[in-house]
Design a binder for these strands. Structure first.
Length: 380
RNA sequence: GGACAGGUGGGUGAGUGGUUAAAGCCAACAGACUGUAAAUCUGUCCCUCCUUGCGAGGUACGAAGGUUCGAAUCCUUCCCUGUCCA
């Protein structure tokens, strides 16, 4: 292993029976063991969780932040002046920034897509901003993230083949533009950041296949599969992943964006996915939905009123080591802010631990059995 | 003892003759949440019954009586609460 600061992927093990892989993703801010779940910290914070806990208690190696949100507030230039995102938010480990492509989907009422880019009306003050493949690279370079994402067009489900094709074409074109621009800027700034293209194509195999093939030519250090979890039935997301992942370069990490019920994590990994992120553990935590080894605990339910047990008896997170369901329910019912922190800590731990188990199984060569037992339990 | 003000469903609080089983908010109960416009959103929230329907009955706006086709809303008496004056 060299001293290159550039992001690169080291494949460690592959499951002989499934597409699962274990590897190491090297970044300028540490090594990320894959497969990995990346907590989402849109506004330079994983809502409710101090960086110290993220690092020391959860041992998260990489988190997400969002280009669109940080561009609007506090502004990427401000962050650059304050030493970049890592220093600004006091997070020493790796950061992946999403490009704002997802906001093309989630803020669909506030934007207009053209070949040039996306015209957004800020959800904060209504101001207009144009995001282009180049400008989003610049913003992300200013932020100083380790992995930048290409601007893409993420469609809602369902989409017609024609609309999906058009969005996919545009996404490929943007990826090419962004990549050329990135390579130039990379040289100028000697930034170690990587830029990942994103496969689109809605729920159409032919479009996904074509998109993956074209993007592969960019020879990027990693690839993402986007456009999932946009309203489609659950099995479709997996199906699209299954159709796409094997087409991406074997020696590069594959990142499926924005997915994952806890039980699905292993399914994605089984399809050759190395990186995942999802808002679910953090958002659901804040809303009182806790993931455990025995399913969901909706903490506000009256049945937990006087329950002295921890959220999950099999969990070793700070919350489970320390507090009862009764206390957590009380915090939730009372609207106490501590609840968010404790609940998010737990849910993230649950996700990260699952991924560590998965990784462990792959390295041991027992992933197939691990997956089978998960599926059996799901049926029960 | 007197003068005002007021008593509405678990709590607040609208409603001053009919589409009012009674707004809104809160609480309670339940559900959702997938590259975060989310510490958010949705539903239920008097009782009983069934052919579970914008269904049928029954209770209900301090109490009792009255006016009226019809009363939470108008009248009478009583009870209670608050403020002020003695």
């Amino acid at each position: 292993m060299g001293y290159s600061e550039n992001v690169h992927f080291e494949l460690q093990a592959e499951c002989p029976d499934t597409g699962a892989r274990a590897g190491l993703l090297h970044t300028a801010h540490g090594v990320v063991e894959t497969p990995v779940f990346m907590p989402v910290g849109t506004q330079a914070t994983v809502k409710g969780v101090p960086q110290r806990d993220l690092e020391c208690d959860l041992d998260a190696r990489i988190i997400l932040a969002n280009t669109y949100h940080l561009f609007l507030r506090p502004g990427h230039e401000l962050i650059r002046h304050l030493g970049g995102l890592h220093q600004f938010m006091a997070w020493p480990r790796a950061i992946l920034t999403d490009s704002g492509g997802f906001q093309v989907f989630s803020l669909s009422d506030l934007r207009k897509v053209t070949d040039e880019g996306v015209l957004f009306r800020s959800h904060l003050d209504g101001d207009q901003h144009l995001f282009t493949p180049e400008s989003t690279v610049d913003v992300q370079l200013a932020l100083g993230s380790d992995i930048m994402m290409v601007l893409d067009e993420c469609l809602a489900y369902p989409a017609s083949h024609e609309a999906a094709n058009q969005a996919m074409r545009r996404t490929v074109a943007w990826a090419n533009t962004a990549y050329r621009y990135y390579l130039r800027r990379k040289e100028e700034t000697s930034s170690p950041a990587a830029l990942f293209p994103i496969v689109q194509g809605s729920m159409f195999h032919d479009l996904r296949t074509a998109c993956a093939a074209e993007l592969s030519e960019l020879n990027a250090p990693g690839y993402a599969i986007g456009g999932l979890s946009v309203g489609e039935p659950r099995p479709l997301s997996l199906e699209m992943t299954e159709a796409t992942a094997p087409l991406l370069p074997r020696d590069r990490p594959r990142y499926v964006m924005g997915v994952g019920m806890p039980e699905e994590l292993a399914e994605y990994v089984a399809r050759g996915v190395d990186m995942l992120d999802c808002v679910l553990p953090s958002r659901n935590a804040r809303n009182g939905c806790l993931f455990t080894s025995e399913g969901r605990v909706i903490i506000k339910q009256a049945r937990y009123r006087d329950d002295p047990a921890p959220i999950d008896p099999n969990c070793h997170c700070y919350t489970c080591r320390t507090y009862s369901r009764a206390y957590l329910r009380h915090l939730f019912q009372a609207g106490e802010i501590l609840f968010s922190t404790l609940a998010t800590l737990h849910n993230l731990k649950h996700y990260l631990d699952r991924m560590r188990q998965i990784r462990h199984a792959i390295l041991l060569g027992t992933f197939r059995a691990y997956l089978d037992s998960l599926r059996r339990r799901a049926v029960e």
